[in-house]
Amino acid sequence: MERWGRNLRDECIGHVLLYNERHALAVVSEYVDHFNDHRPHQGRQQRVPCHNSSHML
Rank of each mutant, 00 (worst) to 15 (best):
E21G: 02
E30D: 13
D10I: 10
E30G: 08
N7I: 11
E21V: 06
D33P: 02
H34Q: 05
V28E: 09
A24N: 03
M56G: 07
M56S: 13
A26N: 15
V27F: 05
R47F: 05
N20S: 08
G14P: 08
F35T: 01
S29R: 15
E21D: 15
V32G: 01
Y19D: 07
V27Y: 09
D10Y: 13
P40N: 02
N20V: 01
H41A: 00
R39E: 10
L8S: 06
V32D: 11
H23A: 04
E2K: 10
H38G: 05
H55K: 11
R39S: 01
R39M: 13
G43S: 03
G14D: 12
L17T: 12
G43P: 01
A24W: 04
H15T: 02
P40H: 13
H23N: 15
V32H: 09
Q42H: 15
S54F: 07
R39H: 02
E2D: 01
V48K: 05
R47D: 04
N20G: 06
N20M: 05
N7T: 15
Q46E: 14
R39K: 15
H34E: 04
A26Y: 04
V27A: 09
Y31D: 01
Y19K: 14
E2T: 13
C50M: 11
G14Y: 09
G43N: 05
P49K: 04
E21R: 13
G5Q: 08
H15I: 04
